[in-house]
């Protein structure tokens, strides 16, 4: 599985952000929030701009971070695919990319969280993208 890479803000002209996945409680396990803060320099950037990654398909994704009064930032995150403005999303591609982004997140968080355990969990529940991971 090709790596996910953090990229600069892409050109969004004639593109739209296509909602893919949301998390209301990113600090349920605090190390997940720490990963995003570290990876996207959120203590400095705050809400100024989304984080951007490129997934194995070549498609770009925007990670939009959410704040909630009384909780450390970010409290939540949405993942949006950056797609051609008037084109539908290719579902299989999106699903494989999401799997890769989550796998990259888990690997980046580090022990005791492992990409191997993520893959095992995906295979246990017969997630299609896990079959080739």
């Amino acid at each position: 599985m090709t790596d996910v890479i953090v990229v600069e803000k892409p050109d969004l002209r004639e593109k739209r952000l296509s909602f893919a996945l949301a998390e209301d409680r990113v600090a349920h396990y605090p190390e997940f929030r720490d990963f995003f803060v570290r990876t996207f320099d959120l203590d400095r950037k705050g809400l100024a701009e989304p984080g951007f990654v490129q997934a194995p398909s070549g498609l770009g994704y925007a990670l939009i971070f959410l704040g909630r009064s009384g909780e450390p930032f970010p409290s939540g995150v949405e993942i949006h695919a950056i797609v051609d403005a008037l084109e539908p999303v290719a579902e299989e591609t999106l699903d494989r990319d999401l799997y890769a982004i989550l796998r990259w997140m888990i690997a980046g968080i580090g022990a005791p969280w492992t990409a191997e355990d993520f893959d095992r969990t995906g295979r246990l529940y017969r997630i299609p993208a896990a079959a080739s991971a």
Binding site: E23, R25, R33, V77, I106, W113, D117, T121, L124
Partner: peptide, 28 residues
């Protein structure tokens, strides 16, 4: 345990496995 319990409902992983792929309502 992380595998499979904590992984299954971890941030973003829960909405993906149990939401998009209904891992608990189906195979679970």
């Amino acid at each position: 345990r992380i595998f499979p319990w904590r992984m299954m409902h971890a941030p973003l992983v829960g909405p993906y496995l149990l939401g998009k792929h209904r891992a608990l309502a189906g195979r679970g």
